[in-house]
């Protein structure tokens, strides 16, 4: 049982942008921004400035950044509740995201969504969704709409490996393959659904094999390699745009933090050693080393990047802190769209 398309059999498309230094540094910067942003989220959560559930993206940055780098502005994106990284990678400002986490009116969802429900419809970013697997049909529907309207955009959905045991996943992949919908299913396999390891929840170890049930193209991708992610998503996007074919990507990554801020980093379900060992694959470190080796990054450039990002995240924190709460009158707005 092998998926229709494997990583080794597909050539790198000529339509990919050149790996010029500016592009490479941009990918580097986007990942580093997410890392530093999330670190500040952790601090702000501890300070009580962020409430509710807060799921950090630290360790998985290459998945969001690599994916967004392969997409167009008119593509549609949905993701799960671990959505800060995708939102920033898609171009939402740290201010808008941080203000939302702080529950402020200037937040991207007006303070009504919070950490798990980041939205910016103007960027085609149609939400963080907080029922595991529940948004997979939604993204499939967005792909249906794209095809119905005769467009060549794609719909992209991120979910964790725990969601593939969910009926919503299977029902969606079946219809997407049956109806040839331009949807890219990105399984961010970070090994654990909360505290349950993949092999304790799934009869199949290789998520990619799930695609065989639906005769759908699929690839396994190294989620710690931002370029590998970008290239795989680019191939999937071409299939979607040109042939209206859906793709399942199993992107293997790792979460360096706990499931949420209320969860310790390793807990009972994984060892400290395992986490430390995985950190040697840190996508930011790996990519920085590559850029250094290729002569695209040096200490000066790195320090400048760090300083710029520190300023940007600091500004976002300040902005979110100072921003006003939503007016009490907004409690009852946006329940219904009138007329």
């Amino acid at each position: 049982m092998t998926p229709k398309t494997g990583t080794t059999t597909v050539a790198r498309p000529a339509t990919l942008p050149a790996d010029d230094p500016a592009t490479m540094r941009r990918l580097m910067r986007d990942m580093l921004l997410i890392r530093r942003f999330e670190e500040k989220c952790g601090e702000s959560y501890a300070l009580g400035k962020i409430g509710g559930f807060c799921h950090l993206y630290i360790g998985q940055e290459a998945v969001a950044v690599g994916t967004m780098a392969a997409l167009r502005p008119d593509d549609l994106i949905m993701t799960s509740y671990r959505d800060h990284g995708q939102a920033l990678a898609r171009g939402m400002t740290p201010r808008a995201v941080m203000a939302e986490l702080f529950g402020k009116a200037a937040g991207c969802s007006g303070g009504k969504g919070g950490s798990m429900h980041l939205f910016d419809a103007s960027l085609g970013f149609l939400g963080g969704h907080a029922i595991v697997g529940g948004h997979i049909p939604l993204a499939t529907g967005a792909a249906f709409a794209i095809k119905y309207q005769g467009g060549d955009a794609v719909s992209v959905v991120f979910f964790g490996e725990a969601a593939v045991n969910n009926g919503a996943f299977h029902e969606s992949l079946n219809m997407a393959a049956l109806w040839k919908l331009p949807c890219i299913y990105i399984c961010e396999n970070n090994r654990y659904g909360m505290g349950t390891a993949l092999e304790r929840a799934s009869a199949l170890y290789d998520v990619v094999q799930r695609a065989c049930s639906y005769d759908m193209p699929a690839e396994t991708v190294d989620g710690m390699d931002v370029l590998a992610v970008r290239d795989a998503v680019h191939r999937a996007a071409l299939r979607g745009r040109e042939r209206k074919t859906p793709t399942l990507l199993e992107i293997r990554t790792y979460r360096f933090m706990g499931h949420s801020m209320s969860d310790p980093i390793h807990g009972h379900y994984r060892t400290k050693d395992e986490v430390e060992q995985q950190k040697t694959r840190d996508p930011i470190h790996v990519f920085a080393e590559k850029l250094r080796a290729d002569g695209m990054l040096d200490d000066t450039a790195w320090q400048a990047m760090e300083a710029e990002i520190a300023d940007e995240v600091g500004d976002a924190l300040h902005f979110a802190d100072e921003a006003p709460d939503p007016d009490a009158s907004t409690l009852t707005t946006d329940v219904y769209r009138e007329p």
């Binding site: 549609l76 949905m78 149609l126 529940g134 948004h135 997979i136 049909p137 939604l138 993204a139 499939t140 529907g141 967005a142 792909a143 249906f144 709409a145 794209i146 119905y148 309207q149 719909s155 009926g167 919503a168 029902e171 969606s172 079946n174 219809m175 049956l178």
Partner: peptide
């Protein structure tokens, strides 16, 4: 015509509405 897959096609309907259709 859909398969017998209520959760799936209801969600596809909602997603299509998010992307501009009136299902």
């Amino acid at each position: 015509d859909t398969p017998i897959t209520e959760l799936g096609f209801a969600g596809i309907g909602v997603g299509a509405a998010m992307a501009g259709l009136r299902p």
